[in-house]
Nucleic acid binder design. Structure first.
Length: 192
DNA sequence: ATAATGATTCGCT
DNA sequence: GCGAATCATTATG
């Protein structure tokens, strides 16, 4: 398991995030990610190796997911990537819908097909049906929630790096360009 | 036990 | 562009 969470954030671009609940498959291509690297990253919940009941999931061996509730409303989905006891995680910020689009629209309560469907960390979880109940699930040993690696890596020149969103409180860490998007893809949460 | 807060989204102006 | 919604988690008494 690599310790290069920033590199892994870029590697996840172009892969498919999949869920299959009650026999209904919904998938989407990952088009935007952010890296969170404790203990030196002030934006991470696990900054300075702060272990709590919530962050404990991030200290597990990479390959499982960290799902938590933000602003009391939104379920945010992360992939835990580090070795055991190293709290590295990648936040999935946006996906491009692939399978089960009708189901995603139903879950989101939308009739139209716009970037409103899955372009945002909170709403993509809703579209895929991911909830905090799935926190800690191992993405490699079950087929409720998993990541499909089709081998289609994104060229470095097609990746846009920029500062992370919503972490202004993180002082100097707020300027780290750890947000990654696929170039010219309108499904990312903000215009290119 | 109680109080503050956020890795956000939506609706209205 | 701005502010409200809304609650689990966290820190503190």
């Amino acid at each position: 398991m690599s310790t290069d969470v920033v590199g892994l954030s870029k590697s996840l671009l172009g892969k498919q995030l999949c869920t299959c609940f009650a026999g209904v498959l919904t998938t989407g291509t990952i088009v935007e990610t952010e890296a969170y690297r404790a203990p030196d990253d002030k934006a991470s919940h696990a900054f300075a190796n702060k272990r709590t009941r919530r962050t404990e999931t991030m200290f597990a061996l990479g390959g499982c997911c960290y799902v938590y509730l933000c602003y009391g409303i939104h379920h945010l989905f992360n992939v835990v990537t580090g070795p055991e006891n190293i709290a590295h995680a990648v936040l999935i910020r946006a996906i491009e819908p692939l399978h089960g689009i009708h189901t995603m629209q139903k879950r989101r309560g939308l009739k139209t097909l716009t970037s409103r469907l899955t372009a945002g960390p909170g709403i993509l979880s809703e579209a895929l049906g991911i909830k905090t109940a799935h926190d800690g699930l191992d993405l490699t040993t079950q087929h409720l929630v998993w990541i499909s690696d089709l081998g289609n890596n994104i060229e470095e020149t097609n990746i846009i790096s920029s500062p992370r969103v919503g972490v202004d409180y993180a002082e100097e860490c707020a300027s780290w360009n750890w947000r990654f998007r696929i170039k010219n893809n309108h499904w990312s949460s903000k215009p290119n």
